[in-house]
């Protein structure tokens, strides 16, 4: 699998697609959707779709695709190769969502879609109804564990998982960190290897490279515990109020530029013009 486009800039999302088989433009097709890497604290999440003519479902079955989670890495690689070899009737597309981005999108490529199979962790019926309304004319099937029930979803899960594995393995750090130990395990927060890696590569100021999902509670907790506190203007209000109060008691750098108390005594303080307050400019006679 060629991840060149993503590796060129792994801070943004990237779409990788196979050629659309001609037969998929003229015949009714079924399509499976699955995802890989939803849980891990690091690396990208990958949505995979795989499609083929409804009439070729049996051929797809004969490729012996199965739920990617039940396969070894080598088996997935082999099956992905088989899917690539079946390019006269099987097409796929991947959306790699970089850990640095949150986005989603849909496929739009001229494939004559008829049936769609989606794997879900949420309420299947609700999603099925929603998708059916959104895409009238499509037969939408949403099922938990769809990746083990429908070969086309298995195929999608294999594409997604292979892409996720490749990109994690070959992750090019844009940070200038020298040799980075790539023994980060599965990336799942419970994995001891992942935990050890997160502890080892924590920078007290910057936290982590962009490879890590900062919004995961595992990463947040470690940064809270071992990193320096960082406060943003849009942090929750109560805390901000306390911070603002603390700031007034000269913890902030800005107090540096405040005139000394002598000249701001209530008696002789003069109201600054709006020109200055808007620009946060203040007169200065001592630091």
């Amino acid at each position: 699998m060629d991840l060149g486009d993503f590796e060129a800039d792994n801070s943004v999302s990237c779409r990788l697609t196979s050629e659309v088989p001609d037969v998929c433009r003229s015949e009714d097709c079924c399509l499976g959707i699955d995802e890989a890497g939803r849980g891990p604290v690091l690396g990208p999440m990958v949505y995979g779709i795989c499609y083929c003519p409804v009439s070729r479902k049996e051929d797809l079955k004969s490729l012996k695709v199965a739920d990617s989670k039940t396969l070894t890495e080598a088996e997935r690689e082999e099956l992905f190769q088989n899917l690539s070899d079946a390019k006269d009737y099987v097409g796929w597309a991947l959306q790699i969502i970089s850990p640095n981005t949150i986005s989603t999108s849909m496929l739009q490529s001229g494939v004559q879609l008829k049936e769609v199979f989606v794997d879900t962790v949420g309420p299947a019926e609700k999603y099925e109804e929603k998708l059916s309304q959104r895409f009238p004319g499509l037969e939408v099937t949403v099922r938990p564990k769809a990746d083990s029930l429908f070969p086309i979803v298995s195929a999608a899960s294999i594409c997604a998982k292979v892409a996720r594995d490749h990109s994690v393995k070959g992750w090019g750090f844009t940070e200038d960190l020298g040799e980075v130990d790539k023994d980060y395990g599965s990336g799942y927060p419970g994995d001891p290897k992942t935990k050890a890696w997160l502890l080892k590569f924590l920078d007290p100021v910057f936290g982590y490279p962009q490879f890590i999902r900062f919004s995961w509670s595992t990463a947040k907790r470690l940064m809270d515990d071992k990193g320096f506190a960082v406060y943003w203007e849009d942090d929750d209000e109560e805390e901000n109020g306390e911070r603002a109060a603390a700031r007034m008691k000269n913890t902030s750098m800005l107090t540096y530029f405040k005139s000394s108390t002598g000249s701001t005594a209530p008696g002789n303080a003069h109201q600054s013009h709006r020109f200055f307050t808007e620009r946060r400019l203040q007169g200065l006679d001592a630091l």
């Binding site: 940070e175 200038d176 960190l177 100021v205 910057f206 506190a229 960082v230």
Partner: peptide
């Protein structure tokens, strides 16, 4: 920076920040 970092001292600015600026 548009945030307050509760720290004063050296930091790996070129390694983490400068190298990733687009």
């Amino acid at each position: 920076m548009p945030c307050e970092i509760e720290y004063n001292g050296p930091a790996q600015v070129s390694q983490y920040l400068t190298s990733t600026i687009k």
